[in-house]
Design a protein around this nucleic acid. Sequence first.
DNA 1: CGGCTTTGACCTGCGC
DNA 2: GCGCAGGTCAAAGCCG
Length: 296
Amino acid sequence: MSDELKDLYYDPFQDDGQNQKLVNIPPISGSSSMGAGYNNNNLQGFDQYPPSSYTSFTDCLQGAAGSAMDYNSIAMAFGLSPSSSEVFSSIEGNNNQKQFDLGDHLSGASHENPVTPNSSVSYSSTEAGLEEDSEKSNKDSNQQKGSDDGGSDNSKNKVNKLAKKKGEKKQKEPRFAFMTKSEVDHLEDGYRWRKYGQKAVKNSPYPRSYYRCTTQKCTVKKRVERSFQDPSTVITTYEGQHNHPIPATLRGNAAAMFHSSMLTTPTSVSSFSQEMLFQMNSQQQGHGSVFHVPQT
DNA sequence: CGGCTTTGACCTGCGC
DNA sequence: GCGCAGGTCAAAGCCG
């Protein structure tokens, strides 16, 4: 997985600052599912942001922007096209250095940019496609094996049923990853997700969970893992784009209306993102900077 | 009873 | 070729 993160993390300071977007999202409160290894020593950021401020990821976003938004919106807010790039943003409270250490560790890049207490960095990458291709090839291979051995094996047969036509390359889904300081692993973002897998992560005591959007025909997936270097940080990676509005029953009409407006005004993404960021920035002046958009 | 989570098995890619 | 790691599947179990 480190390879993927290497894709997601790249040194934004070597890109003339053009891709440098800063984002801070307050930590999200909620019931913790962490084990004994998770203690309050890792919750430094919560001193600044009382856990009661937000009850979910969407609440967090709503609190910041005055309206709900999904990952697409966030990606667009970064000035990136969700369909063509990935974003990695670190969201944190006070211990920024850990975040950057992580970034350095994963990217192997070195930079000397001073880190201000309330700043964090989003990373974008254009190296989309690698994982989906491999995933697709897996299915293809499965199907081929099934026809080779006649599909007598039960489990193999099941997998083969899901295999698609050979050579049918699956398009690389856009990915959008961000880090959030949160007690809960699975952040509420307005969509409904079904967990379909969990894997232990090498060199990390925390497992990685795999979720799929439960909406029919929606292929969006997300991976949730906790940073082993900063256990209070949750790394969420969205893959793909929702082709449906946020379920209104989950987060109320605001979320759906927001998303609907995004869908109906695709040409105003750029101006909207700026406006949204501006609003976020303004809203957060009172208790710390949530969004900081540097001049480009 | 339907939806969701858990979890072991399976598969592929990749590095050695 | 082998072993490891990541990703996915699906049966079983849980829960409202």
